[in-house]
Design a protein around this nucleic acid. Structure first.
Lengths: 338, 338
DNA sequence: TCCATAAATTGTAGCGCTACAAAAGAATGA
DNA sequence: TCATTCTTTTGTAGCGCTACAATTTATGGA
């Protein structure tokens, strides 16, 4: 682009390739965008020369000229743990299979997310994938005005456009049913403080409702700091014990918090699940590796990623799927911790 | 961009804003790019109208017109664990402070990395940050031809342009010195199979050299599969025990593998560090949370991220820093596992 | 009042690419 | 041989924006 001092960097454009190959710029363009329109032999020659000269088509220019983009932007809240790994892989694989590219942005607050959304809109990406339904009002407004395809994942309804996820209430009920069936009666709940996303907030009412139906107390509740990782476990256990020292089970918002609880149990010499049963959420890798293995909810994150991108591409090619909602389900995985 | 069926989506351009505000398009452009050139009152009016109409400047067009980009691309190999979290935060913070934006791409093989590099070059980003020095020859070639600013991180020398990282050999020696000083004599080594990156390969020769100098055997070596997480720990311990059942210490390529070894020790009833001392690498969150705490190497990943982006921006604004190498150092953290 | 200077605003041209239409070549059948 | 059709290639125009130069407007002194 800019020739740095002492660099040979000539800017290679479609025009250079065309001259070198003895064809018109349009033939070069077609070689990349519509290979079928170009004769086999010509195409190969152009490709060879492009590779030799290190040419990469300028997306910015192509985007501008065509009004279309083959880049999809995804915003994820964290790379602190593995929960988004398969989700991103699902998005990448689906995008690649359709000739699209995925770029990411990391945003751990709604404000950062808003900045990331602006970046992506500025780049005129084909669509945006978000996690959760907790966004800045200004960002929601902007996305609606721009009318860019947006998918919110990990939720089953969102304020913007499309959504893909599983029912957190159903999953919460599934875990509690297992605990109740095994005879646990003093069941604690760990959630996240301040979280406005349905990804987390829908769990607590379900907890209260299920326990109430069984005539049990549902006040063993602690809300942890969302930025804590393993460390949230010990803190939460401490608080819950103060509310009721006879607590015999606890459900956690993530496997990381659950692992933190297990570590704390180890320090206290509590046997799991005899003294305390522990359930996690997410089926992170640590859930199967730690001893005892964690009972947890396995959301189909890879499929969620696939669906997100598929829905964006569908819209991009003209399918009228506004407001579409896809349920990717979940699976309860029972291990030794309950 | 494309008007989806049934959407109001008018495309808002700089021109629309200019008409609505009663100024020329250039004044709108200046309002965003060179605010000082525009009168306070005019600027505010333009900004207000732009916000009302949900206008976000089209980077693609701006990039094309100016030949400059304020977007930096970073490619990270994994989001499976926390090791890159602070690194990315360092990059983001530094970029934001300078008015740049960071976008990410996830690539866990050299081939995926090559695709990611192409995506970023296609977008004409201002610079690219890579992890390690293991890349596809074609990708290296392309980056050199393009003469785009590139920083390789976690290494102290790279085949492309600039580098920022710490000495893996010095860190390896530091760990081994601690183990030797504590009296461990049957020290095992876990590395990664097939890894060509200096990030991992420089450790083994140093291991052999340090042990040889102390007159100890250095054949307790196992190379793990790079795609394994915690699971690599148990496998590796198994193999090392077959080589020498009296193994009394082991150094691991990451804290995750080390945690896997700790989990396996728990299953076997081995006390750590009495029966086996375990050292990790990276100071992931789990290192301080697990019992016993892991002795590990803490690289200054946040600073590494800061430096990477700073070097790219320096180049972008014309500083001749080709081939620059920055050492961000490391710290040995001793905990109960050794 | 007029001229010099600074501040604010505005045309013009073109960045690299692609949609579209037009043109040139090749292939077919009568 | 010459229309007719299909395949392949090529101009033209313009996407939304910014560098740069040119112009208009305000400011201040003599």
């Amino acid at each position: 682009m800019t020739k740095g001092p002492g660099q040979t960097g000539t800017v290679v454009t479609m025009h250079s390739i065309a001259s070198a190959a003895g064809v018109s710029p349009m033939t070069v363009s077609n070689t990349f965008r519509h290979p079928a329109r170009v004769q086999e032999e010509t195409r190969r020659r152009v490709m060879r020369i492009a590779a030799e000269m290190g040419y990469v088509p300028n997306h910015a220019a192509g985007n501008l000229a065509s009004g279309h983009s083959r880049v999809i932007g995804a915003i994820i809240p964290s790379i602190k743990n593995s929960s988004f790994y398969k989700y991103v892989r699902g998005m990448q694989d689906t995008a690649a299979a359709q000739g699209y590219e995925l770029i990411l942005n990391l945003a751990d607050t709604a404000l950062h997310e808003q900045a990331a959304i602006q970046t992506f809109i500025g780049l005129r990406v084909a669509g945006i994938a978000l996690v959760g339904d907790e966004h800045e009002p200004a960002a929601i407004d902007l996305l609606k005005k721009t009318a860019i395809p947006v998918v919110e994942s990990w939720v089953q309804a969102g304020p913007i456009d499309m959504a893909v996820g599983h029912s957190t209430t159903a999953a919460t009920k599934a875990i509690l049913d297992v605990l109740l069936a095994r005879g646990y009666r003093q069941i604690g709940f760990i959630g996240y403080e301040g979280a406005a996303s349905r990804r987390f907030t829908e769990r607590l009412p379900m907890y209260r409702s299920v326990l109430a139906q069984s005539g049990l107390s549902s006040d063993l509740v602690h809300l942890a700091d969302e930025t804590d990782g393993f460390g949230a476990g010990p803190k939460a256990l401490d608080r819950l014990c103060r509310i009721n020292p006879r607590i015999d089970a606890v459900i956690c918002p993530t496997d990381i918090v659950a692992a933190g609880v297990l570590f704390e149990c180890g320090r206290r010499g509590w046997r799991v699940p005899d003294r305390l049963a522990v359930a996690g959420w997410g089926d992170y890798e640590i859930a199967s590796e730690i001893t005892p293995g964690l009972t947890t909810i396995q959301p189909n994150t890879y499929e969620m990623g696939q669906q997100s991108v598929a829905m964006i591409i569908d819209r991009a090619i003209g399918k009228p799927n506004q407001g579409q909602i896809v349920d990717t389900g979940f699976r309860l995985i029972e291990r030794a911790s309950t």
